[in-house]
Simulated scan of single mutants.
Amino acid sequence: MENRREAIRGVAGCVVAAAGGAAGMLAWAPYGRRGLFGGFEGAMEWDVLRLGLPVMTLGGIAAGIALFALVQGKWRQALGAAVLLTALAGFGVAFDVLEGPPPMCGPGC
């Protein structure tokens, strides 16, 4: 009976992590679409894909794991995932991967 509970918890944890990764990708999508297809003078900005997508995806996974650990009452695991999430956010800010898409230039540019 205990093995079955652990298996269900494991599957639920994987589902939560996958949902967090998908949420991170969905949060990245508007910025990625604009950066890849509408960069400065039509040029593609590859940093949006190389840095932005992994940071947002891993951030979503870390947030899902932290939330799942909090629900289960595992504070150390939640703290570890929160530290990872903070490190990813710091990396994103340092390399401007979490900064919003550049503003669209109006007709007077």
Results as ranks from 00 to 15, higher is better:
W75L: 13
R76T: 14
W28R: 01
F40L: 10
F40T: 06
M44W: 12
P30M: 05
C105Q: 15
V15D: 10
D96K: 10
Q77N: 13
V16E: 05
I61H: 02
A43P: 00
T86Y: 12
L79H: 02
R5E: 15
Q77I: 10
V97F: 10
E41A: 15
V97S: 15
G24W: 00
A81S: 08
R34D: 13
G13K: 00
E45H: 14
L88A: 08
D96F: 09
R9W: 12
T86Q: 09
V71T: 06
A63L: 15
L70G: 08
G92L: 06
A87Q: 05
G38T: 04
G80E: 09
F68D: 13
V93T: 11
G10D: 09
G92C: 06
M25P: 00
G13P: 01
L67R: 00
G38Y: 12
L98N: 07
A22K: 01
G80T: 09
F68P: 01
A27R: 11
G21S: 05
G13N: 10
L88G: 07
F68Q: 13
L58A: 13
E6Q: 08
A87K: 04
G108E: 10
K74L: 11
A17C: 11
A22C: 09
E41C: 10
L84E: 05
E6G: 03
F68N: 10
G60K: 00
G59C: 02
A69E: 09
P30I: 02
Y31R: 15
A69K: 01
A43V: 07
L53G: 03
L53V: 13
A19T: 09
P101M: 15
A29N: 04
L70K: 05
A94R: 13
G64C: 04
K74S: 11
T57A: 15
A66S: 07
V15M: 14
L79R: 09
M25Y: 13
A18N: 02
G60I: 00
A29W: 13
C14D: 08
G106N: 11
W28H: 04
K74R: 14
G10N: 11
I61G: 02
G32H: 01
R34F: 04
G24E: 05
A66I: 00
P103K: 13
L88W: 01
W28E: 02
G64S: 09
L85W: 08
L79V: 13
G52R: 04
A7G: 07
T57Y: 07
V11K: 07
D47I: 07
L36W: 02
M56W: 11
A87H: 03
L53C: 05
F91W: 11
C105P: 06
L70V: 03
W28I: 02
V11G: 07
C105D: 13
L49W: 06
L26N: 04
